[in-house]
Design a protein around this nucleic acid. Structure first.
Lengths: 344, 344
DNA sequence: CCGATGTGTCGAATCGATTCGACAGCGGAC
DNA sequence: GTCCGCTGTCGAATCGATTCGACACATCGG
């Protein structure tokens, strides 16, 4: 049924090996022969059989992307990473096999030792991630996306949360804010010890403390009620709060709503910095000053690293991506506390 | 490096073919031999090389999932489908190769004629989808998820939008609503002729007309301003509106906010039905009466169908999934029009 | 006791590609 | 004119599995 290299060879009047050398360029072939073979390939629509090829070359041209199921099936945050990874992989000439881990780690082992893929990208690595031990055991090329407590020598790629936090703290510090609230992911993310949630919170609180700013934090459910409770909680614990750092895309409009409901104008009475993708920040009213975590860049870096690792290169232990501060309309100088402004 | 079937055979003291027959069960093997071979397999950690296997069996155990880039890279809606498909595939013993189509259709052709995958699931099929002609040309097993104008004989799976629309219209009809507004996806979805957006709108308007109800519709951006404009537009075109059907997950809370802002209580002054996943409907305040589109079921049906198609079965031309009406707190009988209720 | 009938196992061919070693032809140096 | 070296091509071995045909051996009925 399918066209094989033998069909091409016959059609072009050369041997199979010649066709193969035209394909790989591993030996010099005369220009006329190349042309003839290429014409035959095009005429017959030949594509080398990936399986057959992989058995000699020990390369499949496929990488596996292992998504953990940390937020339940309705996780909304991962798609941009997936997209970016697919695009980056395509640019590197790689295809992507997607894995979930609801079946334990069996899928990863299958894919690696069954030679379905040349390497693995572990997405959203957790602080103590059982997949790490598995991968070091399989000694397959691998890249971690996220920061575990112990990377076991595997190269990792992540956002630079420490720098992001310092950037936020610094910006608010310059504007004169001395008491800052931090709204993070839903409580279950912290309960499950989700790595980026914990790292971001730690980094923010540490950065604030470094500059002598007061900091209080709360997790936040992505519901109107959850936002009300979380904000009330923060304000009760520090009534002098004049700024907020929010790392939770889904609650941004709700937070602005609630602040308006409390009679606080943004940025006149209250400054807000979001840690989120740019388009989410721009979509809000007013557009939010934000520190953007470049998901595309992260996924791209991970794919590129893995590609290089597969080629045999040694990689640096960690590659951290710098966040970017974009000042928009939601941050301003701290006003002396006075009567709350009028609601608009 | 890797363990091959020859290693297992040597370790177990049998021939390679015997090991293979133990693996496939294609010939009777004595229980003792089976036990010995299985022990060797476990001891050596042997997994058959997928590529080598695929060249004889003409099966890879992989399916391709082709996601179109219809909403830009920040599409938030597809993840549940992806999850569900991955899970369903795992249950069927299949792995999933993900494709995007930003590279044209080359990726699909590569994967199919390069024998990377046994079949293709086309996600979010558009009304005139160029991938369809490509696939019929490649004659590879395929399943369409969505409804194109011309399926070209390919089996498809989709939500039953007509039934969903009738269900909504009927429910509102019984409650006495005679003028109903429909809020759909953002304008660009209609501009690009995105199939489900167009089909849902057509179905709703037709179902309303069938029951003698008035219907007006508008697309809607997922921003506060967009919701305000869309609602104002609907109310300007039919001031007698007493109910709303919303098919756009992201705007649900914003719509409720805006209605409250207009002084309309839900459901006393205004009924709202959402077409959305259950958890989104429950998350709102008040919880929304909804017609749920079971994304998991859709993806599962698609994967199962493809698996059967790969096994050689003929499939029905279309499999439509029935939606489910869940009555919650956002729909109620139509009141005589009077002075707007007090805001809460 | 002998031939027919199964059982269980093996050797060898096969799938579709890559790659090593060999070799034919050809031009240039001596 | 002969020999050397280079270029371009080919045949055959190889990768890791599956599967066909054959065969050794045990079992059973007549």
């Amino acid at each position: 049924m399918a066209v094989t290299i033998a069909d091409v060879a016959r059609h072009a009047g050369v041997s199979r090996s010649t066709v193969s050398y035209v394909l790989s360029g591993n030996r010099t072939i005369s220009p006329e022969t190349i042309k003839r073979v290429e014409r035959s390939i095009a005429a017959l629509g030949f594509r080398p059989h990936a399986g057959a090829r992989s058995i000699r070359t020990r390369r499949t041209g496929v990488i596996a992307m292992a998504l953990p199921m940390v937020h339940g099936p309705h996780n909304q945050v991962q798609m941009p990473y997936v997209w970016a990874a697919l695009t980056a992989a395509q640019e590197c000439g790689l295809k992507v096999l997607m894995l979930t881990d609801d079946d334990g780690e069996a899928a990863i082992r299958d894919v690696v030792s069954g030679a379905y893929a040349d390497g693995v990208m572990l997405m959203e690595v957790q602080r103590r991630d059982p997949r790490i031990a598995l991968l070091t055991g399989l000694d397959s090329p691998a890249v971690l996306v996220g920061t575990p407590d112990d990377p076991r020598g595997l190269p990792r790629v992540d956002f630079d949360f420490a720098l992001a936090a310092r950037t936020c703290a610094e910006h608010l510090h310059e504007l004169g804010h001395t008491a800052v609230g931090y709204l993070g992911q839903p409580p279950e993310a912290f309960a499950k010890d989700v790595a980026y949630a914990v790292h971001a919170r730690q980094s923010v609180l540490a950065a604030l403390a470094d500059r002598g700013q007061r900091g209080v934090w709360a997790p936040c459910e992505p519901t109107p009620g959850g936002v009300v409770r979380a904000l009330d909680d923060l304000l009760a614990r520090d009534p002098g709060l004049s700024a907020l750092i929010v790392y939770n895309e889904r609650i941004l409009p709700l937070v602005l709503d609630r602040l308006a409901g409390l009679g606080a104008r943004v940025p006149d009475d209250f400054s807000v910095i979001a840690i989120c993708p740019d388009d989410e920040a721009e979509r809000c009213d007013p557009p939010l000053t934000s520190v953007s975590l470049p998901a595309e860049a992260l996924a791209r870096a991970a794919v590129r690293s893995l590609a290089r690792r597969i080629e045999g290169e040694e990689l640096p232990a960690a590659a951290l991506l710098a966040p970017e501060l974009k000042i928009r309309a939601s941050t301003g100088p701290r006003r002396r506390p006075g009567p709350p402004g009028t609601t608009r």
